[in-house]
């Protein structure tokens, strides 16, 4: 594997999956939260995970980030098995959680430094990466501001910048635009599409169809199962995605 540009490396002539989930199930007590989920996201692909609230998106994210583990199924993060090699797999993973996880009493830079240290980065090496990540999200001018004073859109951008510090190959975002206004949503959706164009594998969970572009990969999750998986344009067919999504997930 070419360490500098892993997004374009090949193994046995085939594109290696950036994210691979096989036969993953999870139950909360007797209630199934995920049933036999399998999908691959190619390296550098932007994959939207669309599902109504309660479809199992958050459970899937918690399993993908190893906040908890399932006895069944398998998760590979850029070729690293999350159960067998959790540390190597997590090192390749960038995560933006649904809730804001910034420490509001600290500045943006302090927050990012804390995160860098959790990934073993400190000193000048960390500062260079923090600057680059903030630059990438147009957040450099806000570095010295307390997280508490940022608006919702800027908080999110700070969190995405934070998730990029350790140069992850795979980026997971759990409803990253929740609670944001239209302009901030568009800016963030744009930023993350750019990241995938540069080679980062992206899994973007949402329940908003307007965040999905026609040439995005799309997985529709409904009632703990995968309902559709393919190119967004193919899934929506000749109707707008919003209508198609509603008819697919409508109560039978």
């Amino acid at each position: 594997m070419d360490p500098k540009r892993p997004g374009t490396s090949f193994s046995n002539g085939a594109v290696m999956a950036g994210l691979r989930v096989s036969n993953l199930s999870y139950n909360f007590g007797a209630k199934p939260a995920l049933q036999d989920i399998s999908f691959d996201v190619d390296r550098g692909q932007f994959c939207a995970l669309l599902g109504p609230n309660g479809a199992g998106k958050s459970t899937l994210f918690n399993l993908l980030t190893r906040l908890f583990t399932s006895p069944t199924g398998r998760i590979e993060i850029d070729g690293q098995d999350l159960a067998k090699n959790p540390r190597a797999a997590l090192a390749r993973l960038g995560i933006v959680f649904q809730q804001t996880t910034l420490d509001l009493d600290l500045t943006v830079r302090q927050n990012l430094r804390y995160f860098a240290a959790l990934h073993g980065l400190s000193g000048r090496a960390a500062d260079l990466r923090i600057d680059a990540a903030l630059e990438r999200l147009d957040m450099k001018p806000r570095a010295a501001e307390k997280a508490r004073t940022l608006n919702g859109g800027h908080k999110r951008r700070a969190e995405i910048a934070r998730a990029l510090i350790h140069k992850p190959l795979v980026l997971l975002l759990d409803e990253p635009t929740a609670g944001l206004d239209a302009a901030a949503r568009q800016a963030i959706t744009g930023h993350v599409h750019d990241l995938s164009a540069e080679g980062t594998t992206v899994l973007w969970a949402t329940h908003l169809t307007d965040e999905v572009r026609p040439d995005d990969r799309l997985i529709i999750l409904h009632q703990s199962r995968i309902l559709a998986d393919g190119l967004a344009a193919d899934i929506s067919g000749d109707q707008p995605l919003a209508d198609r999504f509603l008819s697919l997930t409508a109560p039978a």
Binding site: R87, L90, A91, T101, H119
Partner: peptide, 18 residues
């Protein structure tokens, strides 16, 4: 509850160490 625990626990360092 606030979610910052998730940040800690998804670090690639071993959980016991964190």
């Amino acid at each position: 509850e606030m979610g910052s625990m998730k940040l800690l626990l998804t670090s690639p360092l071993p959980r016991w160490w964190l």
